[in-house]
Amino acid sequence: MNIDLYGFGPVLAAGALMTVKLALSALCLGLVLGLLGALAKTSPYKPLQWLGGTYSTLVRGVPELLWVLLIYYGTVNLMSALGDLFGNPDLALSPFAAGVIALGLCFGAYATEVFRGAILAIPKGHREAGVALGMSRPRIFTRLILPQMWRIALPGLGNLFMILMKDTALVSVISLEEIMRQAQNAVQFTKLPFTFYLVAAFMYLGLTILSMIGMHFLEKRAARGFVRTT
Score class of each variant (00 low, 15 high):
Glu178His: 11
Gly158Cys: 02
Thr142Asp: 09
Leu157Ser: 04
Trp150Arg: 09
Phe141Arg: 10
Thr168Asn: 00
Met180Val: 12
Met149Leu: 13
Gly158Glu: 09
Phe141Glu: 10
Arg137Phe: 04
Ile152Val: 13
Ile174Asn: 05
Arg151Asn: 05
Thr142Leu: 13
Phe161His: 04
Glu178Cys: 09
Asn159Glu: 03
Asp167Ala: 11
Ile152Asn: 08
Gln182Cys: 07
Leu157Val: 02
Arg143Gly: 05
Thr168Val: 00
Ile140Glu: 07
Leu160Asn: 10
Leu146Cys: 14
Val173Tyr: 11
Glu178Ala: 07
Met180Leu: 15
Pro147Arg: 14
Ser172Met: 00
Phe161Leu: 09
Arg137Thr: 06
Leu170Trp: 04
Met162Trp: 03
Asn185Arg: 11
Ser175Cys: 11
Val171His: 05
Asn159Gln: 03
Leu154Asn: 06
Ile163Cys: 02
Leu144Ala: 14
Ser175Met: 10
Phe161Lys: 02
Arg181Trp: 15
Ile145Ser: 05
Leu160Asp: 11
Ser136Ile: 01
Ser175Gln: 10
Met165Ala: 03
Met149Ala: 12
Pro147Ile: 13
Val173Asp: 10
Leu170Ala: 03
Gly156Glu: 07
Ala169Gln: 00
Arg137Ala: 09
Ala169Pro: 01
Ala153Leu: 01
Asp167Ser: 12
Ile163Gln: 05
Arg137Ile: 04
Phe161Ser: 00
Val171Asn: 04
Met165His: 01
Arg139His: 08
Leu170Cys: 02
Ile163Asn: 08
Trp150Asp: 00
Gln182Lys: 14
Ala183Asp: 11
Ile152Gln: 06
Phe141Gln: 10
Thr142Lys: 09
Gln148Thr: 08
Leu146Phe: 15
Val171Tyr: 02
Met162Ile: 15
Asn159Ile: 01
Trp150Ala: 13
Leu154Val: 00
Gln184Ala: 14
Leu164Gly: 07
Phe141Pro: 09
Gly158Pro: 04
Leu170Pro: 01
Phe161Thr: 02
Leu154Trp: 06
Ile179Gly: 12
Ala183Trp: 11
Ser175Ala: 15
Val173Cys: 09
Ser172Asp: 03
Gln148Phe: 10
Ile140Val: 12
Met165Gly: 03
Met149Asp: 06
Leu146Met: 15
Leu164Pro: 06
Leu154Pro: 01
Pro138Trp: 08
Leu176Met: 12
Ala153Trp: 02
Ile145Trp: 05
Asn159Ala: 06
Ile174Met: 06
Leu164Thr: 12
Val171Lys: 01
Ile163Trp: 05
Met149Glu: 05
Arg151Met: 04
Gln148Ile: 04
Ile163Ala: 05
Ala183Phe: 12
Ala153Met: 03
Pro138Cys: 07
Arg143Ser: 15
Ile140Asp: 03
Leu170Arg: 04
Arg137Lys: 08
Leu176Asn: 10
Arg139Pro: 00
Ile145Asp: 05
Leu170Asn: 02
Leu157Pro: 07
Arg137Gly: 00
Ala169Gly: 02
Arg151Ser: 07
Thr168Ser: 10
Leu176His: 10
Ile174Val: 13
Arg181Lys: 15
Val171Ser: 06
Val173Gly: 03
Trp150Phe: 11
Ile145Cys: 08
Pro155Leu: 04
Ala183Thr: 13
Pro138Ile: 07
Gln182Pro: 03
Met162Thr: 13
Leu160Phe: 01
Glu177His: 14
Asn159Thr: 09
Val173Phe: 11
Ser136Thr: 10
Glu177Ser: 15
Ile163Ser: 08
Trp150Lys: 07
Val173Thr: 14
Leu154Asp: 05
Leu164Arg: 02
Pro147Met: 12
Leu146Val: 11
